[in-house]
């Protein structure tokens, strides 16, 4: 027999591998949130006659809110198929620590849904006449903020996975919890545009990420145990 024991890292590796395989075998999971992000943001200039200057001032807020919605919508699929086919039960019954597996699962999901949003965000900044000084802080903020949003949204997803129609309920649960990330994320761009030092806001965003990344898996685990009842 060639059975080799995997440490915790190896075991987490199989979860990461599985999530990525799942994402790439149904590319809609990657493309749809991205399409939503691009289309929704590009509708703002169409919605009213705004001067380039006005657009520039609301750009960061628009991009951040839309990114938040895109992350939340993409999260719906995180536990859905696992819940339906029973894989979730196997995950909960695994002797491996659930906490880290959930962390990796959300991280893998962010890699295929959140990271593309970060990468494409400068293009949308251009579309909304974001002043030049805002691009770096926008991307940095999204890079720190979207994984935190994914973690927060995953709590809502875990709570609602047992329900047939969870879309609006998910929004009601998740959006209020996302406010701090949104405020400091969009605030980072404003701070930069006003020429103020960024360190403080970046530190707050990083702290929020650490907080969400360490506490959310506990809540997700508890929520999943309730959902599989």
């Amino acid at each position: 027999m060639s059975r080799s024991a995997l440490g915790l890292a190896g075991s987490l590796g199989t979860t990461l591998q599985r999530e990525l395989q799942l994402a790439f075998s149904s590319p809609g999971r990657i493309v749809n949130p991205l399409m939503f992000f691009v289309i929704a943001v590009s509708m703002f200039p169409l919605g009213g006659r705004m001067s380039a200057e006005v657009l520039g001032t609301i750009a960061a807020g628009v991009i951040w809110v839309t990114a938040l919605l895109a992350v939340m919508l993409s999260m719906e699929s995180l536990f859905r198929s696992d819940f339906d086919d029973g894989s979730l039960e196997q995950l909960l019954l695994s002797p491996q620590p659930l906490y880290f597996h959930l962390q990796v699962k959300v991280l893998a999901h962010w890699l295929v849904t959140g990271l593309p949003l970060v990468v494409i965000s400068p293009l949308l900044g251009l579309l909304l006449h974001l002043p030049e000084a805002g691009y770096g802080p926008l991307m940095l903020g999204l890079l720190l903020g979207t994984p935190a949003l994914s973690m927060i949204a995953a709590i809502g997803t875990a709570l609602t996975v047992g329900l047939a129609r969870s879309g609006l309920l998910l929004a009601v649960l998740v959006l209020p919890l996302s406010i701090p990330v949104l405020v400091f994320g969009a605030g980072l761009v404003d701070t930069a545009l006003n020429g103020l030092p960024l360190t403080g806001v970046v530190a707050v965003l990083a702290a929020l990420l650490v907080l969400a990344g360490t506490l959310a898996p506990l809540a997700i685990g508890a929520a999943l145990r309730i959902s599989v009842h």
């Binding site: 995997l6 190896g10 075991s11 590796g13 199989t14 979860t15 591998q17 002797p95 597996h101």
Partner: peptide, 15 residues
Amino acid sequence: LRWFCGLQGFSDDAA
């Protein structure tokens, strides 16, 4: 099955 094995803490493609 690889994921199942991973959740049990081992890897064994031959098995």
